[in-house]
C-alpha cells in the first residue's frame, strides 16, 4: 500500500502546517486550477477545495456567498473533477475535498471515490456525514480507494466521542476552534486554550489542525502553539473576492500568513 500524501506531509514536518481552503469555481469558474497552481508554488502544506452547496449550514456569510457565486458560475462536482483532471500530476500539495453530503450522495459515492483517485485527491471532509453512516456505507469504500476521511471536533465534543472519532480518522483531525460557523472571529481565549490543551493531553493517534477563525499571521501562529498547524478559509476567500490578479493575490496572502 502506498503512503497517503497527507501522512507524508506530517512525516516530513511537524509544526506550523498550513492548510488553505478555497471554493471551487470562485471567483470565476476557471479560477479553480489557477488558484490551485499558485498555491502549489507556495509552501502551503495542504489545499482544501470546497465543493459548493446551495445550503451550507456550517458556513458563515463569506463562504456561503462564494458557494452561491460558484454555483451561478456553473460549478458542479463533475466540472471540478474535469478541472482537476487538467492539472493532474502537476500538483505536489495534497488535495482534500470538502463538501456537504447531498451533492456527493447524488453524484454517487463509488463514482466519487473513483474520480478522486483518478485526479489525485487524498482526503475528504463531509461535515454532515454522521459517524454511523460513514462506518456502514463509506469506510470500506474510502479505504479501498486509499482516501482519507477527516472528521471535525468542536469545543462541545465529549472526550468519549473524540476518542471514537480519533479511532476512525485518518490523516488528521479538524479541530474547530470555537463553537461557531466558518469565518467567525477567533481571538484565542482562555476557554479555547483549555479545550486545545484538553485535547492535546488525550494522547490521540491523529494530529490536529485548528480551523475556523484563523485569518492572519497572528492567529495562525497562535493556533500553531496548540496543534500541528491550522486551516484558513474565509480570510483567503475574502482576498480572492477582491483579486484582480489571482497569482499575485495567492502569493501575497500566503506570505502574509507564513512570514511576518
Amino acid at each position: 500500500m502506498t503512503t497517503n500524501p497527507i501522512d507524508s506531509v506530517f512525516q516530513n514536518k511537524d509544526q506550523k502546517l498550513l492548510n488553505v481552503y478555497f471554493t471551487a469555481g470562485f471567483p470565476t469558474l476557471e479560477d479553480t486550477t489557477k488558484i490551485l497552481k499558485s498555491l502549489d508554488e507556495t509552501d502551503v502544506d495542504f489545499v482544501e477545495i470546497g465543493m459548493p452547496f446551495s445550503d451550507p449550514v456550517a458556513d458563515g456569510p463569506t463562504i456561503q456567498e462564494s458557494n452561491d457565486v460558484a454555483l451561478n458560475n456553473g460549478i458542479s462536482i463533475d466540472k471540478l473533477f474535469e478541472q482537476l483532471g487538467t492539472v493532474k500530476g502537476e500538483i505536489k500539495t495534497p488535495i482534500i475535498l470538502m463538501g456537504y453530503l447531498n451533492p456527493v450522495m447524488q453524484y454517487g459515492i463509488e463514482k466519487f471515490c473513483q474520480n478522486c483517485v483518478e485526479v489525485g485527491v487524498s482526503g475528504i471532509i463531509i461535515p454532515d456525514l454522521p459517524m454511523q453512516d460513514y462506518l456502514r456505507q463509506f469506510k470500506q469504500l474510502f479505504e479501498s480507494y486509499g482516501l482519507y476521511n477527516i472528521f471535525l471536533i468542536s469545543p462541545q465534543t465529549s472526550e468519549e466521542r473524540i476518542k471514537l472519532i480519533d479511532e476512525h480518522s485518518n490523516g488528521f483531525i479538524y479541530m474547530v476552534s470555537s463553537a461557531s460557523i466558518t469565518g467567525a472571529k477567533a481571538d484565542i481565549s482562555n476557554s479555547q486554550e483549555a479545550y486545545f490543551n484538553r485535547v492535546n493531553s488525550m494522547g490521540l493517534k491523529n494530529p490536529r489542525l485548528i480551523g475556523f477563525g484563523i485569518s492572519n499571521n497572528e492567529t495562525f501562529e497562535k493556533a500553531c502553539q496548540y496543534a500541528k498547524g491550522a486551516i484558513i478559509g474565509s480570510a483567503f476567500i475574502k482576498a480572492l473576492r477582491k483579486s484582480t490578479n489571482i497569482d499575485h493575490t495567492v502569493k501575497e496572502f500566503i506570505s502574509g500568513i507564513k512570514n511576518n
Binding site: 453530503l101 454532515d128 456525514l129 462541545q156
Partner: peptide
C-alpha cells in the same frame, strides 16, 4: 436520521 455537522452533534 441526524445529518448534522459535528458542531451541532452535542445539541
Amino acid at each position: 436520521g441526524a445529518y448534522v455537522p459535528e458542531m451541532l452533534y452535542p445539541n
